[in-house]
């Protein structure tokens, strides 16, 4: 994205400036308040939550809710906290990340440099497919996973994430590879390099930024997935989001708001870390395919 546009800002505190900064600050409060409340609640004891104001900082800071959320919170009869869901999510995330990016980058490469009759048609079907509500495809996927013997397993979820990540990632890679100078590709072909040779030796080394963007999309997307987790996993393989929802929305026992908020924060921590660490690449990731299709 290029630099800011628009008329040169005036130095004085004009009415326009008051409006601009005033609105932005007001909206910022709407955006930051939930995070503030969440952090504060997770650091308070339960009696203080019941007595006090939801916005107030803790009088007495305690990390007990975090410990409990990670290691002791219950879902049904299991009381080993969110840690199990966390490790499940890690075990789902890593192979899904590698596999989906590998498949989609090769697709994108083939679509941009090795087109053949009908290749674009398949691509358009894929893109339209991205907009099909998952409910419509749910049972066909159930049948697919059952016939492969993967239903309920981590690898079943890996396959599902690879499939459903394909449209957006393929689009991302296709557009990026198409923007590379064609001479690069032509020169390699004259030198006798083949499909895989060009991909590995020419395309891959100059495309690392787009791989980073794809990784950001996938890490946040897969980590945040609830729907596939709830449908295609079993309680032993539930990802973190599903387990979080089960902990917080369980109807048994006293509602421990501080533990719930600590658990919620723990689940959001990884995507938030990715967001803050990746800066503009994140923006590029979420707007991928949206502006330039």
């Amino acid at each position: 994205m290029s630099g800011p546009r628009g008329p040169r800002p005036r130095r004085v505190l004009s009415r326009g400036n008051v409006f601009v900064y005033g609105t932005l600050m007001l909206v910022s409060v709407y955006y930051l308040l939930p995070l503030w409340v969440m952090v504060m609640t997770s650091l308070k004891g339960l009696p203080e939550i019941r007595m006090g104001n939801i916005f107030a900082p803790p009088v007495e800071v305690t990390f007990q809710p975090w410990v409990k959320a990670w290691a002791e919170a219950c879902t049904g009869i299991n009381c080993d906290g969110l840690s199990r869901g966390f490790w499940n999510s890690v075990r789902i995330l890593i192979p899904s990340l590698v596999l989906s990016i590998a498949v989609a980058s090769v697709n994108g490469y083939a679509l941009s440099s090795w087109r053949f009759r009908g290749s674009e048609t398949f691509f358009v079907i894929l893109i339209v497919g991205a907009f099909i509500p998952y409910q419509v495809l749910l049972y066909p996927v159930v049948i697919l996973l059952r016939s492969l013997g993967l239903y309920g397993s981590i690898w079943g979820l890996v396959l599902v994430h690879t499939i459903f990540g394909m449209p957006i990632l393929t689009l991302l890679f296709r557009n990026y590879f198409a923007s590379l100078p064609e001479d690069l590709f032509k020169a390699a072909r004259v030198d006798g390099a083949g499909f895989w040779g060009i991909y590995l030796k020419i395309i891959l080394p100059v495309s690392l930024p787009i791989f980073a963007v794809a990784a950001i999309i996938q890490v946040t997307g897969i980590w945040n997935d609830f729907f596939f987790g709830v449908v295609f996993a079993r309680p032993e393989t539930y990802p973190m989001t599903v387990q979080l929802n089960n902990i917080v929305n369980s109807v048994q026992g006293v509602k421990e708001y501080n533990v719930n908020m600590a658990a919620t924060l723990l689940t959001g921590l990884l995507p938030l870390a990715v967001y803050f660490a990746s800066g503009k690449l994140f923006m590029r990731g979420i707007t991928a395919g949206a502006v330039k299709v």
Binding site: P4, R5, P9, Y31, L35, T267, G268
Partner: peptide, 27 residues
């Protein structure tokens, strides 16, 4: 509008996008 702290404001306005609907809903 060529404002100061554009990056700060953008960071604030964009971070919920990184969170899942489950996390959002529970907050």
């Amino acid at each position: 509008r060529k404002i100061r702290f554009e990056n700060t404001f953008r960071t604030i306005l964009l971070y919920p996008v990184a969170l899942s609907f489950i996390v959002t809903g529970l907050i």
